[in-house]
């Protein structure tokens, strides 16, 4: 679409847009010699430990909403990026997966949201643990470019990127590290 200020291929994070170093491929062969690749969950799980941990390329994994992240949990240290798909903005399973991966299992790599993301969902994603997003929604891209996250001044739940407020209830947080 012509009204997108940012090229759709770019990756957004708290610091703004940047180039996505990863290519997405169905198989490792298809990725050719790309130094960073994201593979479907089933393919990724089928790789040998040696290939996964190879030092010359980064191999990340993309997980569809209907797929469980359970098999990844013991292997988190060997994954540079996990991309959780949002084929439709209304499918919220990946929020809980983000919670499990980042907060319960302390994933250190990049957690990425991919797909149909409304601007009003970006703040939720950051709070549940997403680091980056690759969005296909034109209005969202425009708003992100304008640094308008539609956030609120306070949260009623703990979450990433927020801290406690002295003198108020334990479940409340305000934005900021």
């Amino acid at each position: 679409m012509s009204d997108i200020e940012q090229p759709a291929g770019e990756l957004w994070g708290r610091e703004g847009f940047r180039e996505d170093p990863y290519v997405t491929a169905e198989t490792l062969e298809e990725a050719g010699d790309a130094p960073a690749v994201i593979l479907p969950l089933g393919v990724w799980l089928g790789l040998t430990e040696e290939i996964r941990n190879a030092s010359n390329r980064k191999i990340g994994v993309v997980v569809a909403p209907g797929e469980s992240v359970e098999p990844l949990l013991p292997l988190l240290d060997s994954i540079p990026v996990i991309a959780l798909e949002f084929p439709a903005f209304s499918d919220g399973r990946s929020y809980s997966k983000a919670e499990l991966i980042k907060n319960q299992h302390h994933f250190k790599g990049e957690l990425r949201a991919v797909g149909d993301v409304l601007i009003d969902q970006v703040a939720y994603m950051l709070r549940t643990g997403f680091d980056t997003m690759k969005v296909n929604h034109a209005v969202t891209l425009n708003r992100l470019a304008g640094h308008n996250l539609h956030d609120v001044p306070g949260y009623y739940q703990p979450g990433r990127g927020s801290h406690t407020v002295p003198g108020t209830y334990s479940w409340r947080r305000v934005p900021g590290a």
Binding site: F89, G92, Y95, A98, A123, T128, Y155, Y156, G159, W171
Partner: peptide
């Protein structure tokens, strides 16, 4: 009331089935 507050704009639970 505690549940009301906690569930307000819950980042994980705003797009349930």
């Amino acid at each position: 009331e505690i549940l009301r507050q906690w569930s307000s704009m819950h980042p994980e639970f705003s797009y349930l089935p």
